[in-house]
Amino acid sequence: MRIMMWWLGAMLSLLVMPVEADELGAQLNQFFKTRDPLHAAGINVVVRTPEKQWPTCSAPQLSLPGNSRLWGNMSVAATCDRERRFLQVEVQVTGDYVVANRQIPRGSALTAGDIQIKQGRLDTLPARTVLDPQQIVEAVSVRDILPDQPVTLSMVRQAWRVKAGQPVLVIAQGDGFNVSSEGRALNNATAMQRVRVRMENGQIVSGSVNADGNILITL
């Protein structure tokens, strides 16, 4: 009888043992790789929560708040049946990012020679670091950028596609018609931004700048 009770107690203790470290690590890595397939090859998840606080089932359901960032320190909900535990994890990511190749003065239009690609820990970089050089093609620096400094989107702006006072073509489009007329831009704007235009008859209209510099108005 004692042997039977000991065996039953041992089996019950096994049922509440936390998931193995290797197994939980593999599940978390797969979870974050699926969430960010572009950088899946460089993802490594480190669990910071003590093992005794891990979920007790072998395959917990993992989830994140909808506004969670992709990398860095975050909290993951791990649910086993009706029991939910929160795991503190560090999502480390290695990949390519853009740095300045030389000192770039404020107001300079960036060229291919101004930047280069480096590889390193993306999760330790400043917010909105540029990962793809195509993001800043023809961009203009809004501050001085130092050599080897990671370039962020807050350091640059897109080049003006339309400038205040510039003659522009306004194209009004609607159901079954397309009308164009000339006017003069009243403010600077990049592609896809809104711009106000004074038409030849004095009327002021507002539309979006397309890649060609024309102003599109949808009626």
Rank of each mutant, 00 (worst) to 15 (best):
Q92T: 15
V76K: 04
D132P: 03
D81Q: 14
P105Q: 08
Q92L: 13
L125V: 07
R82K: 15
P133W: 12
V99Y: 08
T79D: 07
I115V: 15
R121W: 00
T79C: 11
D96H: 12
L87Q: 09
K118M: 08
R102L: 08
P105G: 01
Q88G: 14
I117F: 00
E83P: 01
R82D: 14
I104F: 06
V91M: 00
R82L: 13
L110Q: 02
K118I: 01
F86K: 08
G120R: 03
V91W: 05
T124Q: 10
D96T: 12
C80K: 05
R82T: 15
E83V: 10
T124G: 00
D123I: 03
N101Q: 14
L110I: 11
G120V: 00
L125R: 09
A109V: 10
A109M: 09
L122C: 10
A100E: 02
Q119Y: 09
G95R: 09
Q103I: 09
F86M: 10
K118D: 03
S75I: 12
A77V: 11
I104V: 15
A127V: 13
V76F: 00
G95W: 03
V91L: 01
G120E: 05
A109Q: 12
R102P: 03
C80R: 07
R85S: 15
S108C: 00
V130T: 07
P133A: 06
A100D: 05
A77H: 08
R102A: 13
G120Y: 06
I117L: 15
T111K: 01
M74I: 00
Q103W: 07
A112H: 09
D123L: 06
E90H: 14
E83N: 13
A78L: 07
N101R: 11
S75A: 11
N101E: 14
V130D: 07
R121V: 03
T129W: 07
I104P: 10
Q92Y: 06
V93W: 03
K118Y: 02
G113I: 00
Q116A: 11
I115T: 14
R85I: 13
E83Q: 14
G107Q: 08
D114H: 00
I117H: 01
V91Y: 05
P105E: 09
I104E: 10
R121P: 01
L87E: 10
Q103P: 06
R102C: 12
V89S: 11
A112W: 03
